[in-house]
Amino acid sequence: MKVMIRRDAAGALSAYVPKKDLEEPIVSMDNPDMWGGVVTLANGWRLELPAMAADTRLPLTVDARRLGE
């Protein structure tokens, strides 16, 4: 699924899923640089993000896979 990852003015990360019109903060990351790991959203969704360089600029739309469906 397409997911837009962005960082707000305070530095907090969030994920927006356009197909569901859902925007949730990212509350935890399995991988410190986020890319190539699993992130957990505030609503409990777990998303597997593709591997990318640690210095990838945000906002960015990626293909993520929802885990635990």
Rank of each mutant, 00 (worst) to 15 (best):
D21H: 14
L41T: 00
K20Y: 14
A42G: 07
K20Q: 09
G36I: 03
R7Q: 15
L41Y: 01
E23A: 03
R66F: 08
R57F: 06
E48V: 06
P50M: 01
R66A: 11
V39N: 02
N31V: 13
T56A: 13
T61H: 05
K2N: 09
R65V: 09
M1T: 12
D55G: 11
M29E: 15
R66Y: 01
T56S: 14
M34Y: 01
D33P: 02
L22T: 10
L41A: 02
R46T: 06
R66K: 09
L13D: 04
W45S: 03
Y16H: 07
W35D: 01
W35R: 03
E69H: 12
A9V: 15
V3M: 08
T40Q: 13
I5T: 00
L60D: 05
L67E: 04
M1K: 14
S28T: 06
A64C: 09
S28W: 02
A12S: 09
A64K: 06
R7F: 04
W35M: 07
L67W: 14
L41N: 04
V38S: 01
K20T: 04
D55Q: 10
K20D: 12
R66W: 03
D55Y: 09
L58E: 04
D21N: 15
M34V: 13
V62A: 10
V27M: 08
R46H: 12
A51E: 14
T56H: 05
Y16D: 06
D63Q: 12
L13Q: 06
A10F: 14
A12R: 12
T56E: 12
A15S: 11
T56Y: 12
G11L: 01
L22C: 07
S28R: 03
D21M: 04
M34P: 02
M1A: 13
N43M: 10
A54Q: 10
G44E: 05
S28V: 05
A64M: 14
V17A: 00
R6A: 10
R6V: 00
M29P: 14
I5V: 15
M1Y: 03
E24K: 08
D21G: 09
E69D: 15
E69A: 15
R46L: 05
I5G: 00
G68Y: 09
K20I: 04
A15H: 02
E48F: 12
R46Y: 08
A51R: 11
A12T: 14
L49G: 00
L60T: 14
V27H: 05
G36W: 01
A54R: 06
A9G: 14
T40L: 06
P50T: 02
D63N: 06
P32R: 01
